[in-house]
């Protein structure tokens, strides 16, 4: 059931990417999709009544959540920031060239 809500978040982002005409809106859509995927990984790693995967001195912690997807998502979040930065740089450059963010007015292929 909780997976379905995560999927709906993914679909909101997908809808934004497909239908919007503004470049910044498309970048926002890509960001939302990214959030949904990261959240999905962590949802899979979760354990009912689990504990964070950090060991403590002099006590045995049972029922830890899965640390492997957390490590992968930690990588993915940082890469997401880099991707957003690159996309925004390209969008700014396109704005300088064409004076608009509307993707239907950006037609000339010649650099």
């Amino acid at each position: 059931m909780i997976y379905l809500l995560c999927l709906i978040l993914f679909c909101v982002g997908l809808y934004c990417i497909i239908t919007k005409r503004n470049l910044i809106k498309i970048i926002i859509g890509i960001g939302i999709v990214e959030y949904a995927i990261n959240l999905f990984f962590i949802l899979i790693a979760y354990r009912i009544r689990g504990r964070a995967p950090i060991l403590a001195q002099d006590q045995v912690i049972e029922n830890m959540v899965d640390p492997l997807p957390q490590a992968i998502v930690l990588t993915a979040i940082v890469i997401g920031l880099a991707v957003t930065a690159l996309l925004v740089a390209i969008a700014i450059r396109i704005y300088e060239k064409y004076g608009t963010f509307d993707i239907e007015k950006i037609k000339r292929l010649k650099g």
Partner: peptide, 18 residues
């Protein structure tokens, strides 16, 4: 809430930069 404190910190910083 999903018991991933490292991710919460990184997400906070990355979100602000974004």
């Amino acid at each position: 809430t999903l018991k991933a404190p490292d991710l919460a910190i990184v997400q906070l910083v990355v979100e602000i930069l974004c």
